[in-house]
């Protein structure tokens, strides 16, 4: 099974009703370093991730994975996770089922995934009555069970308190340690620094800068990113 990475974006644009949201973005995402997509609200972070994940089709340009079957070997965790009205365990089992995992293996793999995110004690509880942080961990468990080659995370902790945020970040590090390529959008500089190896800085739908984390902080090269860092730092 050959790797689906690198992912190539060539001159990718995305527009809705003539309003340009992503403008001529060219990128190559390689296996390995965790990539943080950073930018202000409305910079196009979520849309760029949805284009990469295949939930949106580009208005122009090309997005190509390096081998067939990329759909099944990537996962995405959204800002607001959607839980099915069934138990936590069955939510993971569902993800395995639709991914084509044989019935006999589903429950064991699902239990392992719940263990990984620390949700084994609530495995039988209905997913929708879990707390926000638990639901997001369950969303990560659904992704973990699939052992994706690439994991997209769209501001996964935007709605969570600091404690829940730390738990989520620990799990994201575990994905990275297990060899999954992490691609995450955030507007939190602290989170970017804690989890990322490199930064893609988006400004008004364009890539303003792409730098390794240790170069981006404390001094971004682009004026847009420098202004953003200066603005955000005191509150971070």
């Amino acid at each position: 099974m050959s790797a689906i990475l690198p992912l190539r974006l060539e001159e990718v644009s995305y527009a809705v009703d003539g309003r340009r949201i992503i403008e001529r973005v060219s990128l190559v995402l390689e296996a390995g370093p965790s990539t943080i997509i950073l930018g202000a609200n409305g910079a196009g972070k979520s849309v760029l991730m949805r284009l990469m994940h295949g939930l949106l089709a580009p208005s122009a340009g090309r997005i190509t994975w390096s081998s067939q079957g990329a759909r099944r070997r990537q996962a995405m965790v959204f800002q607001r996770p959607v839980m099915l009205r069934r138990s936590a365990l069955d939510n993971v089992v569902y993800a395995l089922k639709v991914a084509g995992v044989p019935a006999a293996q589903r429950e064991r793999l699902a239990q392992e995934a719940l263990d990984e995110v620390g949700l084994r004690p609530v495995a039988r509880r209905p997913a929708r009555v879990l707390s926000g942080g638990e639901q997001q961990r369950l969303a990560l468990a659904r992704a973990w069970a699939l052992h994706p080659e690439v994991l997209f995370l769209d501001e996964p902790t935007a709605n969570l308190d600091p404690g829940a945020t730390r738990e989520i970040e620990t799990i994201i590090k575990a994905f990275d340690a297990a060899g999954t390529k992490v691609v995450m959008s955030t507007h939190s500089l602290g989170q970017a620094r804690r989890l990322g190896d490199e930064v893609i800085f988006l400004h008004q739908g364009r890539v303003a800068e792409r730098s390794p984390m240790d170069q981006f902080f404390p001094l971004p090269a682009s004026p847009e990113a420098a202004a953003f860092v200066k603005r955000e730092l005191p509150w971070d």
């Binding site: 996962a75 959607v82 569902y94």
Partner: peptide, 12 residues
Amino acid sequence: RDYEEQLRSFGV
């Protein structure tokens, strides 16, 4: 409207 993105992400 709520489920679509998540389900499409699962390939459903």
